[in-house]
Write a protein that binds this DNA or RNA. Structure first.
Lengths: 325, 325
DNA sequence: TTGTACGCGTTATCAA
DNA sequence: TTGATAACGCGTACAA
């Protein structure tokens, strides 16, 4: 693999000149510059990013650490982050933690060791520690869920309010016993959505189960709820992956969404309009969350002293047919 | 940020000893080793991966470059790659090219410049060039689609045969005019699936359209086909994203899957069992494709002289109700 | 077993 | 405008 030294000797100049010519920094004699470019071309020279970053003490890559690549909500965020980052010449690498604290820690280590320019993180849980990154000066912005006990940049969705609104919507459509299926305790979004639900129905009549943010867990939880002596006649479900499990559970019990059991789920996944009846959803502006996060991150990279910002975006209810009889 | 030098002076030893102690390579006096670890701990020392990789001329990260993060097929591959890579201590970073040749080129450059240990690539199209990577000695394995004109490791799915089988299945279920909706020309999987379809129906009676591997494109293409004077009474659709568009098109025309228009689509997306009627699919072993690719890549990293291997996995038809009347 | 010293490939500083 | 040279932080011959 050709190095800058090879190019230099081939062009008959110093490495310094090669560097200057190729980076277009300081001004270089056009003739020399052309010679250098030619030599580089002929040698198939590509600068070694490792050496460059080591020298410059910076990298043009952002790490995006999310908990589930298979969840459309997070992939939409990824596209948002990517699109904005690209405009500033940053590349984005995606790391999937699979809701696993160990993997998360490992990827945070990688981010630290590889000295990425910044990280966008959707923390798996309580135990997430970004201390080392912050100590080292690597900017971190939290998305979707806040970082426990840390003041810093973050982009959140007002999911509690949205959960309340969805519950009210169900009640308004004549359902009497609205239940809720939420994610794991300690995961902020799950806690918030449950809280928003409780805000409306009141603590005494709350009827809910919690499970992992997965289809299978939700299916079991839903079955459990439906088999109660006094089962719910409507369900608020905390994300679209769980919604899949809930729909399966309803099918197993021969219950029809809407008519038998009202349904509202978080996240406007692409398939929600395809099913019968179409699913009423709480659409989160995932793409915009991603863009906002990248925006905050880039701003922070540019100026580490600015005030930490919290951006809160609104979710909106899209009423379709699964929430009416 | 603490460096190895800081640790060395704090522990009262040389940097060489610190390096040895922390990497557990050569043998070090236990007492000194403990002192080193303690000093490192106190300083919050984390080795600089850039410097380390520069020195070692290697990195423990794999790049996975795919064309669509929002396609469950690719995310499943991602999990396969990741799971296998983890067992060997490699991290995986995901790059989304969005079916865009420019982005792809950019990410290939990043991979080259950052000197990743290897890359798993699902090439967007004809123009994909991995010459530079290969020249540099970075192993590349192609997944899903082969790299044009290159002999190298690859993991493919026998999608042509599967397309033929699906077509036969539709014909066998009494559909008379089976049509096909495939992806863009030049994308190997799209070409193959179309070819598999033509293999069965014969060139003269072929009734097909091609569009981007996207819902909207497929919707339009499906509408176009359905509005023909002699429209198809069954459709083979080349992926699950397109299937969404096709289902929308059918709904717009008031056509019911199965009864009015038989339907088989590639990829067993999570929602395919939720719709009514459940979608008959050609399930590709995406997760296994990912594992196999990582396996090949790791083997190649370990031994660059081994024979290039092509792994071909089989897809299987899952007959549900959208393909019968 | 430990330390000294060099080099990995760049870029930035300083003289010329 | 150009070139020699010193870092960046680490790992590893080689010598002690």
């Amino acid at each position: 693999m050709a190095t800058i030294t090879d190019v230099a000797s081939r062009a008959g100049v110093s490495t310094a000149t090669v560097s200057r010519a190729l980076n277009g920094k300081s001004t270089v004699d056009p003739v020399l510059a052309a010679r250098v470019r030619r030599a580089a071309e002929e040698l198939g020279y590509h600068p070694n990013g490792l050496a460059r970053n080591l020298r410059r003490q910076e990298t043009a890559v952002l790490a995006l650490i999310i908990s589930d690549v298979e969840n459309p909500f997070f992939t939409a965020i990824a596209r948002g982050v990517e699109d904005l980052a690209q405009t500033s010449g940053y590349s984005v690498v995606l790391c999937n933690t699979d809701e696993n604290a160990d993997k998360e820690r490992r990827y945070l280590d990688v981010a630290l060791q590889e000295r990425v320019a910044g990280v966008v993180l959707s923390p798996t849980g309580h135990a997430t520690s970004v201390d080392r990154l912050r100590r080292q000066g690597t900017p971190v912005v939290a998305v979707d869920r806040p970082l426990a006990g840390i003041v810093g940049d973050q982009v959140l969705v007002d999911t509690r309010r949205a959960a309340g609104e969805a519950t009210t919507h169900l009640l308004g459509n004549g359902y009497q016993r609205v239940g809720c299926l939420s994610g794991p305790t300690g995961v902020r979004t799950a806690d918030d959505r449950l809280a928003g639900y409780v805000d409306v129905v009141g603590g005494r009549s709350a009827l809910f189960r919690r499970s992992a943010y997965r289809a299978e867990g939700a299916r079991l939880a839903a079955l459990d709820l439906l088999d109660e002596p006094a089962p719910p006649d409507a369900l608020l479900v905390a994300n679209s992956t769980m919604a899949i499990g809930v729909l399966e559970a309803l099918a197993e019990r021969g219950l029809r969404p809407g008519r038998d059991v009202g349904l509202v789920a978080f996240d406007d996944a692409p398939w929600t309009t395809l099913i019968d009846p179409p699913l009423t959803v709480v659409a989160q502006p995932a793409y915009d969350v991603g863009r906002a996060a990248a925006d905050l991150l880039l701003a922070r990279i540019g100026d580490s002293t600015r005030e930490p910002a919290t951006v809160t975006l609104e979710a909106r209810l899209i009423a379709r047919h699964s929430s009416r009889r």
